[in-house]
Design a binder for these strands. Structure first.
Lengths: 344, 344
DNA sequence: TCATTTTATGAAACCGTTTACATCTGCAGC
DNA sequence: GCTGCAGATGTAAACGGTTTCATAAAATGA
């Protein structure tokens, strides 16, 4: 692999000139540039990015640190990050699949010197001091942080608002006996959604403790498992709010299999609005979460910070979560008599 | 940000010693090491990875180049790549969302010097010479290449085999009038699946031209669109084979909406076995594609190459694609009389 | 024609590491 | 009291670029 010196020698110029040619400096005459380019091509030369970033202190790379995720949220988020980054010719250094704590510290250290900034998803308590440390070196943008970190911008999904909107909608439909299938413990999105669920009930003067809260892990199977509890319950809840679509899908499937019709016998709501939510049977009422937009915003924010000469005030952007009404919820009055809940 | 020199000065040693401490060299006495570590901590020092890789020529990073993808395949693939890489403490430099050609060349050049090897998904004709060029610098592993490239190992999904197995199964069930919803033009997976479909028919002595082939793009909506053509067709095909699950889901949804029951009135097959395929109504018969395993294998292969001292023979690994039979296909005899096809 | 400015180029320091090699110290062996 | 050797450390040259500053050449203005 040819170096800049070999190209310089071949073209009969100095390394400075070659360097200038490859960074499109205007301080090189046209024919010199051409000569250099020709030599470079012959030698199959291309600047070594690592060496370049060592001396310029810019890497044109954004570090991304994610916990071990799965599902469509992850892939949409990545697409958003990805697209926006490549749009601006930035690369992405990815490090995921870690559980927090020292893990995260090691990973972010390995990134040091190779990234211009770091985007971090859902840092938990254990990662907070890592964030603080990284922040001294490069700008950090947080996604859905559990709590704001001094000096870090953040982009958040309005999980809480979305959940509140769902419950308000259900209350309007006359439901008073609600079940909730929660997401995994320790997951910020899951917790915010649950908080939204509980507080909405409280605000409406209902006792959240009386609502049926079932454990879940954001996977389809958790919805299936929840269904058995729900079906066995008397009086049976009139609606089930699953903390994400995957679980809602599992739930709907199990209910259908048990001969329980949605929404005639029981209503179901999800959260996320995954691509196929509209193609379910019945089409799923859910909350639209623009994961792709979340990623896009995070990258934009990062690029803004990188471009800015001086530090700006801490910015917190919120990606709205809008209710997407389809056909999986009906009004309570429409419920079959036999299954009608003894609400209020 | 402190450099190795400052730490050396603070600890009263040379930079060589500091370097040795941070690379766990045994050539440092215990108390010197301790002293160095203490100074480093005080100064909040951590080695600069870019500088490190400049002198060691190792980056501990694998480059990944993907076309602009969406859907569960992408996210599963990424998870496989990701997990295996972090398991071995490798990082991932991602560059995606490009369409091939000069785009790919530029992106891979930007990676030069920052990666130990490159994993590339579905390189098309336009990218072949980029691959050839990159290969001279770092090892390359190809995923689902359209054609093998001299000197590059590859991992492939048995798309063709999977499609053949589907058709064989359908023929066994007595179907003779098949429809196919294709994937996007130019997509290798899509094309291999279609080839499998066509050739199976041919082998069975059926005329592939007579089969109904509809265009698609791997999105749910394409399945919906296909349904209108299929329902209008007389005689109506007894089964629809969608080139991926997303389209199969769109299709099932549209058929249901049109009052056409699956599998009583028409059978449906997908491809991919996405997480929720088993929770559809009816559960979808499909082909299991282990995208996660594909990614895992690719990383393993790459790490093997990186560890190997000398070049080994070109390896080609195939990830099998097994038929996953659920409930969306029935035997032709079971079809309702009125809709029975005039097959054979 | 000469001083002045502009433009193109080169020399060399620098970015933050690693590592081959040199050096120093202390100790065992004779 | 040497020699030889092992272990711990230091020196300095890479690694492959960029960039400041100096300089040479060309263009400009008087």
């Amino acid at each position: 692999m040819a170096t800049i010196r070999e190209v310089a020698r071949a073209a009969g110029v100095s390394t400075a000139t070659v360097s200038r040619v490859f960074s499109n400096s205007p301080l090189v005459s046209a024919d010199t540039a051409e000569r250099v380019l020709k030599s470079a091509q012959q030698l199959d030369y291309w600047p070594n990015s690592a060496a370049r970033s060592l001396s310029t202190h810019r890497t044109h790379t954004i570090g991304i640190m994610l916990p071990d995720l799965f599902g469509e949220f992850y892939s949409d988020l990545m697409r958003g990050l990805d697209r926006e980054a490549s749009l601006h010719e930035y690369q992405i250094l990815l490090s995921s699949s870690h559980s927090g704590g020292s893990d995260v510290l090691a990973a972010s250290r390995a990134m040091l010197g190779r990234i211009d900034g770091l985007i971090m998803l859902a840092p938990d308590e254990k990662s907070i001091d890592t964030v603080e440390r990284v922040r001294r070196r490069v700008p950090v943008v947080l996604l859905n942080p559990r709590q704001p970190v001094e000096g870090c911008h953040s982009v958040e999904v309005a999980n809480y608002d979305g959940a509140r909107r769902v419950v308000e909608y259900l209350l309007e439909l006359g439901h008073r006996d609600l079940a909730f299938v929660a997401g995994p413990e320790g997951n910020v999105d899951a917790e915010e959604r649950r908080r939204g669920f509980r507080e909405s009930l409280q605000v409406a003067g209902l006792d959240p403790d009386q609502a049926l809260e079932l454990p879940g892990d954001f996977r389809e199977i958790a919805g299936v498992e929840a269904s058995t509890v729900i079906l066995a319950r008397h009086p049976r809840p009139t609606v089930v709010f699953a903390a994400n679509d995957a679980m809602a899908i599992g739930l709907q499937s199990a209910l259908h299999r048990a001969g329980c019709r949605v929404p005639q016998d029981i209503s179901v709501v999800g959260f996320d609005n995954v691509a196929m939510a509209g193609y379910l049977n019945p089409p799923l009422t859910t909350v639209n979460v623009d994961a792709c937009g979340l990623g896009r915003e995070a990258v934009r924010m990062m690029l803004d910070v990188l471009r800015a000469s001086e530090e700006s005030a801490q910015i917190r952007r919120v990606i709205p979560a809008a209710l997407k009404i389809r056909e999986s919820c009906s009004a309570v009055e429409a419920l079959r008599a036999g299954h009608k809940s003894n609400s209020n």
